[in-house]
Design a protein around this nucleic acid. Structure first.
Length: 250
DNA sequence: ATCCAGTCCT
DNA sequence: AGGACTGGAT
């Protein structure tokens, strides 16, 4: 850690505690109320959450999360069996025709491969990823990473959402790191929690030192700060909740 | 017109 | 460690 800033860290802690301790509420993954209802319903439509997680990279998050919902509308079915009918060529043509993603070819492949994995390895029920054998967080993160194009960022984000937002009682929060994406990297540096030249790996290690019992605890707060105020250029420090506590290291 | 992004690949 | 991917944002 570059230097200790107790006031800042206490504020982050209080914000994170609020998020983690509140009762389960509907999370806004998209700008579509109908889609959000389905993505939040991991008890009945867990594949929307898993597929949406995988799509949620390199594009604004709402656009990624809505991809499974958009495709379910095309297929006229929300059950997993509807998705299972998709072959790779059809999946690719849907992605390209509607420009669902920046990386339509790769993401269509990942989408199709994920459906096949849920079919063959999780008995057509994506929630088995976090229910089979009563896994701990480390196991669930590993299972997410076994999907095509799921790495450190997506796997930790997904499990963080399962624990923090969906209130799943998964043990071993020590395994949940911060998601190493650009928001977390930028905000950690500007807050003075990480040196200016820190690599993603170092950011993750710094978060482990700050809160070892749950390194990804501050992830959501920092991500919201980065998305809402701490923009790459022209950060809106005046309106930022951290104004007055943040050293604003640009 | 240039910049940017997680994961995979070299 | 460093580049490719690819199209929306700036």
């Amino acid at each position: 850690m570059a230097s200790s800033n107790k006031e800042l860290e206490d504020f982050l802690l209080s914000q994170a505690l609020e998020l983690h301790q509140r009762p389960r509420v509907i999370i806004e993954f998209t700008k579509n109320v109908g889609a959000d209802k389905i993505i939040n319903d991991i008890e009945h439509f867990p594949h929307f959450f898993v597929l949406g997680s995988i799509m949620n990279q390199q594009i604004v998050f709402q656009r990624g999360w809505i991809i499974p919902y958009f495709i379910s509308e095309l297929l006229n079915g929300k059950d997993f069996e509807s998705f299972l009918k998709l072959d790779l060529a059809t999946t690719k043509s849907i992605f390209h025709e509607h420009s669902l993603h920046h990386f339509n070819d790769k993401m269509a492949f990942a989408f199709h491969a994920a459906i096949q994995k849920i079919h063959f390895e999780y008995d057509n029920d994506a929630s088995n990823i976090w229910t089979w054998d009563e896994p701990d967080c480390k196991t669930v993160i590993r299972r997410f990473q076994e999907f095509h194009r799921v790495g450190q960022k997506i796997s930790t984000m997904a499990v963080n959402v399962l624990v923090r937002d969906f209130k799943l009682p998964l043990p071993n929060h020590r395994a949940i790191d911060v998601s190493g994406d650009v928001h977390i990297e930028r905000v950690f540096k500007r807050m003075g929690l990480a040196p200016r030249d820190a690599k993603i790996k170092e950011i993750i290690e710094i978060a482990q030192k700050i809160y070892p019992e749950y390194p990804g605890f501050y992830d959501s707060v920092c991500w919201e700060i980065g998305n809402g105020w701490c923009k790459p250029s022209n950060p809106d420090c005046e309106q930022c909740p951290l104004n007055g506590k943040c050293p604003k290291i640009i």
